[in-house]
């Protein structure tokens, strides 16, 4: 069984937003970056995976098990880090750990103490007096101390300074040396994923726009830059287009065709994940569908 997470035809409707039958598959030993703009459905998907909300239809299988029927068995094997602190702020770090640890049958105090040392967590400080970075580190220490096979992270880096973000990413990278661990990491800060992600899934407006390996994604897309004069009516090769007084910038999935169309007069660059996300999801009149 290599599929750690398998989401199929998952739907959830709210008054003003709906998740429209999404499909996601994450294999064992990989990090999947789940990207999309704010309000695109990332948190809703994670809440459904974690059973915090009820789905309307579809299936979620984790470790090959249905996530509703095997809720407890699955949660034993999951570590989670959320974007905000939901721990009890009135408790100290140690008290909170003492409350949580008995619920995990595979809790390893040694690993927790190692992270406490590495992260310099103040055990006797109330959680409300910790900085945002420290709260996230505490959350991560809890998530990593019970031999979780899947880490679910909902925007763990939002609001953190670059130093702590980089520290977190280093920890995640070192974790993946263990081939049994997988990470599902949602973020709108795509630069976090440049270093660590194996797969990228892009969601927008409750729909999965694409899901493939990061290398494939960066390889098959290109950024095209040129002057406005060069921009003719045929924009079929562009996924998204930005124009200003000086020229245009576009994302394309068809490098060869673009070169054929424009010749050497245009500049072709490698895109970043941010470019890909922005061009695929921008709410602009200049958006050109790739389909």
């Amino acid at each position: 069984m290599n599929k750690i997470l398998e989401v199929s035809n998952l739907s959830k409707s709210y008054k003003d937003f709906s998740l429209k039958g999404i499909n996601i598959t994450l294999e064992k030993g990989y990090i999947m970056g789940f990207i999309g703009p704010n309000g695109s459905g990332k948190s809703t998907t994670i809440k459904l995976i974690m059973n915090l909300i009820k789905k309307n239809s579809g299936n979620i299988k984790i470790f090959g098990l249905d996530n509703e029927q095997n809720n407890i068995a699955i949660k034993e094997r999951i570590g989670f880090v959320y974007d905000e602190n939901h721990f009890y702020e009135e408790l100290t770090v140690k008290e909170m750990k003492d409350v949580i640890s008995p619920f995990y049958s595979r809790w390893d105090e040694r690993i927790f103490n190692k992270y406490v040392k590495d992260f310099e967590l103040p055990l006797n400080k109330e959680i409300k007096h910790l900085s945002k970075g420290m709260k996230m580190k505490f959350s991560l220490a809890i998530a990593l101390s019970h031999q979780a096979e899947l880490l679910i992270m909902d925007e763990p880096t939002s609001g953190l300074d670059p130093l702590i973000r980089s520290e977190l990413l280093d920890v995640l990278q070192s974790l993946l040396q263990d081939e049994n661990k997988s990470i599902f990491f949602s973020t709108h800060i795509t630069s976090d994923l440049d270093k660590i992600a194996d797969f990228i899934t892009l969601i927008n407006n409750g729909e999965i726009i694409l899901s493939k390996t990061k290398d494939e994604l960066l390889e098959e897309h290109c950024i095209v830059k040129g002057s406005k004069k060069q921009l003719n009516n045929d924009q079929g090769n562009f996924i998204g287009l930005k124009q200003n007084d000086f020229g245009f910038e576009a994302l394309s999935k068809n490098k060869k065709e673009v070169i054929k169309q424009f010749g050497d007069s245009i500049m072709i660059e490698k895109p970043t994940l941010e470019d890909i996300m922005v061009f695929y999801t921008r709410r602009s009149d200049h958006h050109v569908s790739s389909h």
């Binding site: 974690m50 059973n51 915090l52 809720n71 407890i72 068995a73 949660k75 034993e76 999951i78 989670f80 959320y82 905000e84 602190n85 939901h86 721990f87 009890y88 702020e89 009135e90 949580i100 619920f103 995990y104």
Partner: peptide, 16 residues
Amino acid sequence: LEDKNNSDIILISLPI
């Protein structure tokens, strides 16, 4: 206090 911290999210996410 549970409501203030929205801590049900933690309880539900734990194997409880």
